[in-house]
Simulated scan of single mutants.
Amino acid sequence: MQRIALFPGSFDPITLGHTDIIDRALDLFDEIVIGIGTNSSKTPMFSLEQRVQWIKDIYARTPKVKVLTYAGLTAKFCEEIGARFILRGIRGVVDFEYEKAIADVNRMMDNKLETVFLSCTPKYSTIASSLVRDVLKYGGDPTPLLPEQVLKHINR
């Protein structure tokens, strides 16, 4: 049986923190599906199509990584794609408490789902997409925060 993990998020934009978690999880799973969840209560800075394209560009040479979009419950999406694992990155204690609550609810929805937490590499532990959006909005330099493929698009 294939070990498929879903890495859910908005990825608005995908950051070096995200890619750190994905890259380090490659040896743990047969396939990682980056699931861009659509949330009707959030207005993203970047289009869904742009976020999908960035991820495709970043992982073009990594066949184990796929990107899909979804709406609704993460546990239901895991069932649709055959994922038994949910991959989550943890920056600190606050993240852990929040993520554990979500993991507990996902397990209630489907008792076969396991959430795997990876702690961020320390140099990426302060990167959050919301902070990156603020840096971009106010004209700061996002270079230490974003993958090259995202920077190329933003700097155009």
Rank of each mutant, 00 (worst) to 15 (best):
L28E: 08
Q50V: 11
G37F: 12
Q53R: 15
I36K: 07
H18D: 11
E31L: 04
G17V: 08
Q50C: 08
S10N: 09
G35W: 08
T43H: 13
I21M: 04
Q53M: 10
S40I: 15
V52K: 14
G17F: 05
Q53Y: 07
K56T: 03
S40G: 12
I32R: 08
F46C: 07
V33G: 03
D23G: 11
L16K: 12
S40N: 13
F11Y: 10
T15M: 00
L48H: 11
E49A: 12
I22K: 04
A25R: 11
T43I: 11
L16T: 02
W54T: 04
T19G: 06
M45Y: 11
T15Q: 02
R24G: 01
D20K: 05
I36M: 14
D12R: 00
L26Y: 01
I34V: 13
P44T: 15
I55F: 08
S47I: 06
L48R: 12
G9R: 00
I21G: 02
L26E: 06
I14Q: 04
H18M: 14
V33S: 03
D30M: 08
I32H: 07
L26R: 09
F46Y: 13
E31T: 11
G9T: 06
T19V: 13
V33R: 11
R24K: 15
T19D: 01
V33H: 06
P44W: 12
E31G: 01
T43Q: 15
T19A: 03
F11P: 03
Q50M: 13
F46R: 13
L16W: 01
D20V: 07
V52Q: 10
E49G: 11
F11K: 00
P44C: 13
E49V: 12
T38A: 12
M45F: 15
T19M: 06
V33L: 09
G35E: 07
R51H: 09
I21N: 03
I21K: 01
S47N: 05
Q50A: 11
T38N: 12
G9V: 00
I32N: 04
E49K: 14
P13D: 00
G37P: 15
M45D: 09
N39M: 12
E49N: 13
S47H: 11
F29S: 01
P44L: 07
G17K: 01
G9Q: 00
E31M: 09
S41T: 15
Q53V: 03
I22N: 06
K42L: 14
L26V: 00
R24D: 03
F29M: 07
T38S: 14
G35M: 13
S10H: 00
K42Y: 08
I36Q: 10
I34G: 13
I32Q: 09
Q50P: 06
I32Y: 05
P44I: 06
N39Y: 11
K56P: 01
S40V: 14
W54K: 05
H18C: 06
P44F: 07
T43V: 15
Q53S: 05
I32S: 06
G37W: 12
I21P: 03
N39I: 10
V52P: 10
E49W: 06
G35Q: 10
F46G: 05
I34M: 09
D30I: 07
L28K: 09
W54N: 04
D27T: 05
R24Y: 04
I34Q: 10
G35Y: 14
V52D: 09
